[in-house]
């Protein structure tokens, strides 16, 4: 029997790189497949989709027409955009101020309060739904977009993110600004925000995507068609007695576009923000 030749040094050298590429290829396939399948399905009829057809069809225009017939697209997009943009702006405003405050101001209670804020991350949303619904009901906010905004604008995760990022903000900049005559709010606005813009951009992407895709809480508090967001509408199309999956895929594509757009526009800032604004 001929002995198997030992792998050469060259083979061993390329093995780690090859493993990395294989792992990345699998991850890329898993990430991209749903998008590709969504695009293919949007061009096929519901029956073809159920049959598992994996090639492009000719029902795209029919699906688009049906979607626009069934759904008041401008209203639904307006609702989603309004909720997502307002939630994002308010969350960033509140959470960045909180993160800045937690890091910059020293007091005996600071870390206790911060621990309590972080503790709220451990409470599952399912446990909060009923109390929140009752609160919104008593405040007369059911079926309004304010009911979606209020519980989300003080985000423990985004506060945590801002506080951690603020640790890299040079305190000497704050001192220099004080000597230059700036009040604390002016330091925040004119120095902190521009210096930490990558952190803000990353937070914007995270909060916007979360808010745009928010499903469970809007499903509970938004009850009329006039207030519903795109995620609720697509979901309702999918849960019809005879769902038209081609139409659902058109809705899914349209619902995905804004988040993709925001991500691609802010991609560089997002990556920089995740790595830290201050270098």
């Amino acid at each position: 029997m001929t002995p198997t030749p030992a792998p050469s040094a060259r083979t061993w050298r390329f093995l780690p790189a090859a493993s990395t590429y294989i792992a990345l290829s699998i991850a890329a396939f898993v990430s991209l497949f749903p998008f590709v399948w969504m695009l293919i399905s949007a061009t096929n009829t519901s029956i073809d989709i159920i049959k598992g057809k994996t090639s492009f069809g000719d029902a795209f225009s029919t699906n688009v027409t049906n979607f626009f017939t069934l759904v008041d697209v401008p209203l639904v997009f307006w609702n989603s955009a309004k909720v997502a943009i307002l939630t994002t702006l308010l969350t960033i405003a509140v959470s960045s101020l909180a993160g800045y405050g937690f890091e910059m101001f020293r007091s005996k209670m600071r870390d206790h309060i911060y621990s309590l804020v972080l503790l709220t991350l451990m409470v599952p949303f399912a446990a909060l739904m009923i109390p929140l619904f009752m609160m919104m009901g008593r405040a007369g906010l059911i079926n309004t977009h304010v009911a979606i905004l209020l519980p989300t604008i003080a985000s423990a995760f985004i506060i945590f993110y801002f506080r951690q990022s603020t640790k890299a903000f040079p305190t000497e900049l704050r001192d220099a600004a004080k000597v230059d005559g700036l009040k604390e709010w002016q330091i925040f606005l004119y120095i902190y925000v521009p210096v930490m813009r990558s952190t803000f951009a990353a937070a914007f992407v995270i909060v916007f995507m979360t808010s745009w895709n928010n499903y469970l809480w809007p499903l509970i508090v938004l009850q009329s068609n006039e207030t519903k967001t795109i995620t609720l509408v697509v979901s309702s199309l999918a849960s019809a007695y005879y769902p038209d999956f081609g139409v659902v895929m058109i809705g899914t594509i349209l619902a995905t576009l804004p988040t993709l757009l925001v991500f691609f526009i802010m991609q560089r800032q997002f990556v920089a923000g995740m790595l830290g604004s201050v270098k």
Binding site: E172, L173, A177, K178, V179, L182, P194, V195
Partner: peptide, 20 residues
């Protein structure tokens, strides 16, 4: 008295220039 009203100017170790 507020730092800006003391008639002082300060130069810091890390320069503390506004990067933007």
């Amino acid at each position: 008295v507020d730092p800006s009203k003391r008639g002082i100017a300060m130069v810091f170790q890390s320069y503390a220039l506004y990067p933007h």
